[in-house]
Design a protein around this nucleic acid. Structure first.
Lengths: 152, 152
DNA sequence: CCTGTATGGTTTCATGTGCAACTATTCAGC
DNA sequence: GCTGAATAGTTGCACATGAAACCATACAGG
């Protein structure tokens, strides 16, 4: 497993955390152009919208779990999105502590417009990979994530 | 290439940027425990040390390029590390604008202690992957990065 | 019921970061 | 050799973020 990295030196180009961070950063930055420039959304806001688009109705807590964002960060993103009438937030009738979030018509419309662009962009990004490679990539990433979860 | 994601819904678990970000975040967080708790280094400081350990002598500019960090961020990390006598910073005799950075004895000693722990931790992380898979993973990531570079 | 505890979410505060303005040094063109 | 543009690095400022304190609601045990 260490065949790639000589034992004496510390070659960062073969160090997974570094490579992962660099790639994630570049991907994130490039993707952000899609929703920042045209829709004035920051990363947190985009993620909230994406999850609401995906799951239809969620509470802030659930979004925290899905996105690994701090609850304060989610709270603030929700406030902005609500102020822009892209989502609605109403206390659950069952439990007044939690608030059900969902897209408004406007929010839905925005996502219907934005999501295809995002998907097209991703397709462009992963074009150099074969379908099989892409599948393997996600699979390996999944195994690494699971390993981190069990450790913590 | 889109066989995995149904065309109507937007499944974030098969969306590479999201998966990449989540994994990088988890890896980064776990790794940070190694150098934060015991050595009181933040991410920026760790990266500067790692690159100086790797390359022996660099300028702030070169570290910016390697790490994709803002020059202000590098500058501040350097100030802290210099204050802790982990690195030295001297103006290049050739060009007084740029400052050559290198590890001090203490910095070297710290890295000699820390790097093996970091490598062991990474080895543990990627243990579920075969050598070949690991190689392919880095290769795929490299291709994705190159794709982003040519686009920008 | 009433009291104490747990939970969802908000707000406050300290900190880290990026951008832009700035300083110091170099270098090209005249 | 000056002058003006370019470059390495620093600093000021505004903003986003995370941790912790906080508020409101729910719920369990007496």
């Amino acid at each position: 497993m260490t065949a790639e990295t000589p034992p004496t030196d510390f070659d960062l180009d073969h160090f997974l955390p570094y490579r992962l961070d660099r790639l994630a950063d570049r991907v994130s930055e490039a993707l952000a152009h899609l929703y920042e420039a045209h829709y004035d959304l920051n990363v947190a806001q985009w993620r909230v919208l994406a999850w609401l688009h995906h799951r239809h109705e969620l509470t802030a807590k659930q979004i925290c779990a899905s996105t690994r964002m701090d609850k304060a960060r989610v709270s603030r993103a929700v406030q902005v999105l609500e102020g822009r009438d892209l989502i609605v937030r109403r206390p659950s009738p069952r439990d007044q502590r939690l608030h059900e979030l969902r897209l408004t018509e406007a929010g839905q419309a925005l996502m219907v417009e934005l999501v295809p662009q995002v998907r097209a962009w991703e397709a462009e990004l992963v074009a150099p990979l074969t379908t099989d490679e892409y599948r393997r990539l996600l699979d390996m990433m999944g195994r690494l994530e699971r390993r981190l979860q069990e450790g913590e």
